[in-house]
Simulated assay, not measured.
Amino acid sequence: MLESLITSKTRVRLLLKLFLNPGSSGYLRELADEFGESTNSVRVELNRLAEAGLLESSTEGRTKVYRANSGHPLFPEIQGLVRKTMGIDRLVESVVAKLGDVKLAFVTGDYARGVNSGLIDLVLVGDIDRGYLQSLVSRLEGDLKVKIRWLVLNEAEFGTLRTNFEGQDALVIWKRED
């Protein structure tokens, strides 16, 4: 979807990487290697997005690190567009909202890092109907053309395993406010 609106594949990859999970960041060579692009093409797009104020940068040692500018007025809209492109918005609406007492839902792995690998790692916390979840996931996999690997934890299990998730990239897609 983004490819039809934005003709630069490098720019699309940068938006997916940095806006899907605003906590993620990257530096020029790392991004070029990840995308399989030349450093020059990545540099041009990083500069354009930074000049537009969509990215902010900081220097860590001798390396310039880029991340999404969450304070930019268009940030919520761009992030929403990126999430729709990745299918996460449909995942939330179709799976999480109808499953029972969902306390927390988050994506880990490649999608949380902004990489579209075709595999979504979904973690759900709460009292969830697993049979209904499996039927919804099966339908979504066909619609989105991705594989969804899911894990359901109750609150006690999540409390025990929480430290296992802390070192990973995690993108919270649903959190019930009590």
Rank of each mutant, 00 (worst) to 15 (best):
E34Q: 13
E34R: 07
F35N: 10
F35V: 07
G36C: 13
G36E: 11
G36T: 11
E37V: 09
S38E: 09
T39M: 11
T39D: 03
T39H: 08
T39I: 14
T39V: 14
N40C: 00
N40M: 15
S41N: 14
V42A: 13
V42Q: 12
R43Q: 13
V44G: 01
E45A: 10
L46A: 04
L46S: 09
N47E: 14
R48W: 03
R48Q: 10
R48P: 00
L49G: 05
A50Q: 13
A50V: 00
A50C: 02
E51C: 00
E51H: 04
E51L: 11
E51T: 07
A52T: 01
A52L: 15
A52Y: 04
A52Q: 10
A52H: 01
G53V: 05
L54V: 02
L54Y: 11
L54I: 02
L54P: 01
L54Q: 02
L54K: 02
L55H: 05
L55I: 04
S57Q: 07
S57I: 00
S58Q: 08
T59I: 13
E60M: 02
G61W: 04
R62I: 06
R62H: 13
T63I: 14
T63L: 11
K64V: 15
K64H: 07
K64F: 03
V65N: 08
V65L: 11
V65S: 06
Y66I: 08
Y66M: 08
R67T: 09
R67Y: 06
A68Y: 01
A68T: 06
N69Y: 06
N69Q: 04
S70W: 00
G71M: 02
G71H: 09
G71D: 13
H72K: 05
H72E: 04
P73C: 02
P73M: 03
F75N: 04
F75P: 01
F75D: 03
P76A: 05
P76R: 08
E77M: 14
E77K: 13
E77H: 12
E77F: 15
I78S: 06
Q79M: 11
Q79E: 14
G80M: 01
L81I: 08
L81S: 10
V82D: 03
V82H: 03
V82W: 02
V82M: 08
K84N: 05
T85G: 03
T85C: 02
T85D: 11
T85Q: 09
M86P: 01
M86C: 07
